[in-house]
Design a protein around this nucleic acid. Structure first.
Lengths: 239, 239
DNA sequence: TGAGCATATTGTAAATTTTACATAAAGGTA
DNA sequence: TACCTTTATGTAAAATTTACAATATGCTCA
């Protein structure tokens, strides 16, 4: 390994200048009727004690594209999580003392069981309401803001919100998920009419158990049906 | 400058591994009723004679975000061109003999006057129909495909197609732009009804000159009006 | 066991939007 | 002035969206 005190001046064999590349993950989850983001607290180094987005540097032998999944696995133990790129940030001085280009991904994790693990380099880890994010290191507040905008935009063109729900969910949960993320109120009758006509939900004919009132029906997402619709150029617009 | 024969093993002062980072630009233009992409032919090196997307390596002292505009300026002399990130590709072996992570942007340039300059490292430069792209280096065919999909998707949610037209354009040009990009036929009466009701075009009350038939009206895009609409969460859907 | 409570579920009429479809107007050319 | 090419425009039917509130269900508790 070559250690270079001045990373900014390193070039490769072709004279091409090199950069540090990282990934940052805006991990969304639903808790009750709040949309939350997962944050970690750095344990050492120049940003010790400060809160930040989970992320990692891109290693030689890993595809950039697999890095977000690795980060997710480390933090939650979850695999096959929905992850999508939404931005790349590469201003020269976005990170102090180092030039770091970062790929920003958002991830949606469902309200099912997982165990938060802070990892070796973090002192703490927690969920924070999207509307109440503390001051984070570097441009991470800006990244979250863009990630939230990307999520809202995407939610209006694709029903990716199901990724935030358990495998089986009620129509009430489904509606509240849209209301929470988009910060709007929807008419229940019209919402259900529209969603059921879209035919992307499957009625499991099962009812939620152990509720102290009328037991709601459970649905699952019809991914195959949705994929064929999508292939024909389809949008689910909910306002 | 430090020259490293094995770029893959270079790390910075923190022990973080470094990567070569580039930008690639899918530059779209309209020619008649064809959607075209700008390609360059490499002049030397291991890919001599092969066709590729225009691009560049990210230099130490340049923001990643300004690189596409620099590439555009060099090739066409144009400034203030519409540019948008649509992907980042970072598979370990996507480029032979080197690990290169690339940010993929698409750009829309209008059918007004510009002069193509191939630049120092290119042997040739040309416009190629989107439906007839030759074999390109690395994963550039895949990048173009994704860029085209990103353009079509974006065109259905924002009227960015005006970036491909001259400042003043006719409704016929406007309609044909949608038809060309989306590869569909639209009903003229319904299309005009919808567009004019959206109120995002301004009638200049001028007519196109020197046409050997009924002179069409010229319109401009109402960017301010559109921005206020957009701020309220607005989509222009054309099918 | 039945009254009360909390949430789930459902319909309809009016307004709006979308769709399908064809002819007349304008302006230059021969 | 007749002709050619393209521009410009209306209407009725169908489909979708919107606004709006009462009933059904299943549990709890007296």
């Amino acid at each position: 390994m070559l250690i270079n005190p001045n990373q900014k001046r390193v070039v490769n064999v072709d004279g091409v200048q090199l950069s540090t590349v990282s990934v940052d993950c805006v991990i969304f989850g639903l808790e009750g009727d709040e949309l939350k983001v997962l944050l970690i607290q750095h344990d050492e180094g120049p940003v010790e004690g400060q809160w930040a987005l989970p992320g990692d540097y891109v290693k030689f032998d890993f595809d950039l594209e697999e890095m977000p999944s690795i980060v997710l696995k480390q933090l939650t133990g979850l695999e096959n999580v929905f992850v999508e790129l939404f931005d790349v940030l590469g201003k020269v001085n976005r990170v102090a003392h180092q030039r770091v280009i970062t790929a920003a991904y958002f991830a949606l994790i469902s309200t099912e069981k997982y165990e938060l693990k802070k990892g070796l380099e973090a002192r703490d880890i927690k969920w924070v309401d999207i509307h109440n994010i503390p001051d984070l290191i570097y441009d991470h507040n800006e990244i979250i803001k863009k990630g939230y905008e990307a999520l809202k935009l995407k939610l209006r063109t694709e029903p990716i919100g199901v990724e935030l729900l358990p495998k089986q969910f009620t129509l009430t949960q489904f509606q509240k998920m849209y209301e929470t993320i988009l910060d709007i109120k929807l008419d229940t009758r019209n919402f259900r009419k529209k969603i059921l006509k879209e035919d992307i939900l499957i009625d499991t004919n099962q009812k939620e158990l152990n509720v102290p009132y009328r037991a709601p029906n459970l649905y699952t997402f019809n991914a195959e049906k949705y994929d064929t619709l999508k292939a024909k150029g389809y949008f689910l617009n909910i306002y």
